[in-house]
Design a protein around this nucleic acid. Sequence first.
DNA 1: ACCCGTCGACAAGCCCGCCTTGTCGACCGA
DNA 2: TCGGTCGACAAGGCGGGCTTGTCGACGGGT
Lengths: 309, 309
Amino acid sequence: MEPELRQMRYFVAVAERRSFTRAAEDVYVAQQALSQQIKALEDTLGVRLLDRTSRRVELTPAGAAYLADCKRLLAAAGRATQHARAVADGEAGTLRIAYTVTAVYETLPALTAHLAARAPRLKVETREVFASDVCRMLREERCDLALAPRTGYPKGIARRTVRREALMAAVGDGHPSAGAPAVELAGLRDETFQLWPRDMAPGYYDAVAGACRAAGFEPVLDETASGSNAWAAIAAGRGVNLVVASLAHQLPRGITLVPLAGPAPELRLDAVWRAEQPHPAVSRVLDGCAELWPAQQAGGAVSARPASP
Amino acid sequence: MEPELRQMRYFVAVAERRSFTRAAEDVYVAQQALSQQIKALEDTLGVRLLDRTSRRVELTPAGAAYLADCKRLLAAAGRATQHARAVADGEAGTLRIAYTVTAVYETLPALTAHLAARAPRLKVETREVFASDVCRMLREERCDLALAPRTGYPKGIARRTVRREALMAAVGDGHPSAGAPAVELAGLRDETFQLWPRDMAPGYYDAVAGACRAAGFEPVLDETASGSNAWAAIAAGRGVNLVVASLAHQLPRGITLVPLAGPAPELRLDAVWRAEQPHPAVSRVLDGCAELWPAQQAGGAVSARPASP
DNA sequence: ACCCGTCGACAAGCCCGCCTTGTCGACCGA
DNA sequence: TCGGTCGACAAGGCGGGCTTGTCGACGGGT
């Protein structure tokens, strides 16, 4: 037989009160039960822990050593319980957030700062991904939550819009509209759009292409566009794009942002997670987003909340 | 109810095999018992540890955190058991040795070095005491073992001679016998002996006074003698004393040791310990002494061995 | 599409082991 | 010497853990 925590609890009680009778009151059992269990513990250890000289009881050297270990073990067991509960409540543990580049300029830093303040024991790991990888990352348990432009997901993946950002025109510094206070989107109908292919960033693609169609034209794409390559092309005067306003925080060299005239088209940023077994901290993240960006979330919620356990 | 180590063992088994059925084989119970105990564990924690999707079982984030804690706890419990056994066997733990100054020149260093080699996990704490304090130190659990010149002890204290050392004459460098190859003890009958009062060091006193009486005279004492004060007096030519040969390792300035002519009187060094609840390492110490100083111990053993537990 | 194999949960009963009550022997103080 | 206290021993009851038996669900194979 192996030692059990209950026996350790009994042993600690006896050792600290130096009495079976008094310890029995502490742990709410009869004195005889303590005698039995301590004896059983000593038998499994093969070690005498207490010297019973009728009248008083004293620790043997081995008992003193084991007592210290028992206290540590019991304390550690209690902490483990508390920690498990904290992780289940989303207050502790590790939350792995994947994000697309769109979120990096403002949304992700604001969110991580908010979480660090509200749930300091929650460790947040972040990783930049392509929007096309979000679904797989979640399914394969390689992340717990993603931030990506709004798009559709298969069953088993839930999403909720946490923030809406105005889209602006990104043009080269030498572009005719570069200095203008605003630009008509329709006026860009003849430009080449440095937009990633739809299968790499469907949400972003739909937002931009949708805005163009609403303005009455189908955007002409540069199929070679990708990442910083696209910025270089725009800076060099080869095309334009629509980007989130928060790009201003990390504006690439040679690029100018120009507001769009009229009602600005938006990009909706979604939080995305596993519908089945959501990470416990997901609901905390959603709460945090609701605080950070209130009244931006009414539209587009597919799942109001991850199911409570 | 509180979590028990048995439940943790079950949980670890299930988590590592990712299967109730397979884990059941590992821990030699039926699968249903595992389901029950894991459920009970989850109930006491108030936390779901495993996600059962019929076909496979997966850890929740809280379960993963708790699993790590459980492994640590189980390992620590095993170490605690081993450590308690080691302490009970005298291989580990702390042994507090009190010694009189007589032992410090050779006996104690040899013994601690031997123990450090034979029982490296046993921490030895040493403290110099007066022989008159040995009994009280042991009774009050302020030390576990003492090294002191042979003398009698009340019931409850056991002793065994571990070493015999030749006594030599300690004289001032300017003493007539200082250069001699040997000196007759009877020739020192008119000297003042710088010997501590009997109630401070009975064993040592009896050894020296007994040697003098065997040589045919009663030593004249300097009642003010004590510690380094005695050395200073001898160095200044005011008296002599008989000392153990190993004093040569730390010979005080101005003192010369001269062998005694004829069969040299001895000082017997005893190991002394509580007869009732001896420290488990005491028997190892006695074994060590028997190895270090064989055939010096036949005489004077009051207790052949501390009672085995 | 159907069936079968596998897996975990549910149900009921047994049995071990933990706790209880009752008692004794030992030690200590009065 | 006697009473009080403390821990160990003994016997019995009861609760809980384990077992057997069964079901529903999911997946893969034909």
